[in-house]
């Protein structure tokens, strides 16, 4: 109980002191996770849309797989990416292990199925409404996908948020491929894990509170953006 109270005080102290070390860790967390979401969106959105609109053999299997991969265990992803990026692995020559890039890759792998699966569902629903209309307008398949993605953007934004939430909160993947190296690959979650292993429970919890505050802020910013966009459209 006292740990909880101390945790809130620690969180507040850290925030008020504008600790530069903490700021750097927060910045790296955001950089890595936003980067991962950007990469995952570039891959996952077109993928989800194509699966939503496409009719090909094995489509249901792809849908099931995408939905299932939303639950990929971060540690497993971390291990696989580690084995790929390790000097002994197939991509070892690039020397990416223990860099923020490796963390972006691992989180992108985690987030892509989430964005792809949510995009697939959203676009498929919209497709049901739009299909005949777009076909009579003579829109090509590719343009259809672009149109559906654009018109579904409010819902897709929620998908991006879900992906960001997953990325910024996970520790299992980034701690393996990033190595939790101080000032290089240390992010919020790996710091929390480290402080926990040091027995600094209240500091760890304080950092956790800050992490939650950050995700709430990002979510609020996105919603504000979405609200403004909605007003602009409805003019």
């Amino acid at each position: 109980m006292s740990d909880l109270a101390t945790a809130f005080r620690d969180a507040l102290d850290l925030l008020l002191s504008l600790d530069p070390e903490l700021a750097a860790i927060v910045a790296l967390s955001l950089q890595v996770s936003l980067g991962a979401v950007a990469v995952a969106a570039l891959v996952g959105m077109p993928l989800g849309a194509v699966v939503a609109v496409g009719r090909f053999p094995g489509r249901m299997a792809v849908v099931v797989l995408m939905n299932a991969l939303m639950g990929l265990p971060p540690v497993v992803v971390g291990l696989v990416v580690y084995l790929l990026l390790s000097r002994a692995g197939p991509l070892g020559a690039f020397g990416l292990l223990y860099t923020p890039t490796a963390m972006v890759i691992a989180q992108a792998v985690l987030v892509t199925p989430i964005i792809a699966a949510l995009t697939r569902q959203t676009v498929e629903d919209l497709w049901g409404e739009y299909e005949e209309q777009l076909r009579v307008l003579g829109v090509s398949r590719l343009e259809m996908v672009a149109t559906l993605l654009w018109d579904a953007r409010p819902s897709l934004l929620t998908g991006l948020l879900a992906g960001f939430g997953r990325a910024v909160a996970e520790v299992g993947a980034v701690i393996i491929v990033g190595g939790n190296i101080n000032h290089v690959t240390r992010v919020m979650t790996t710091t929390i894990a480290l402080e926990t292993s040091k027995g600094n429970l209240s500091l760890a919890l304080g950092l956790g509170i800050i992490l939650v505050a950050i995700t709430v802020t990002v979510s609020a910013l996105v919603m504000a953006m979405r609200g403004r966009e909605g007003r602009a459209v409805h003019g």
Partner: peptide
């Protein structure tokens, strides 16, 4: 749906794009 053949179509329930 090649653009050479132009057929305008209006559905019973209008489909408005979200714009």
């Amino acid at each position: 749906r090649s653009r050479a053949t132009r057929i305008g179509f209006v559905f019973q329930k209008p489909v408005m794009l979200r714009r």
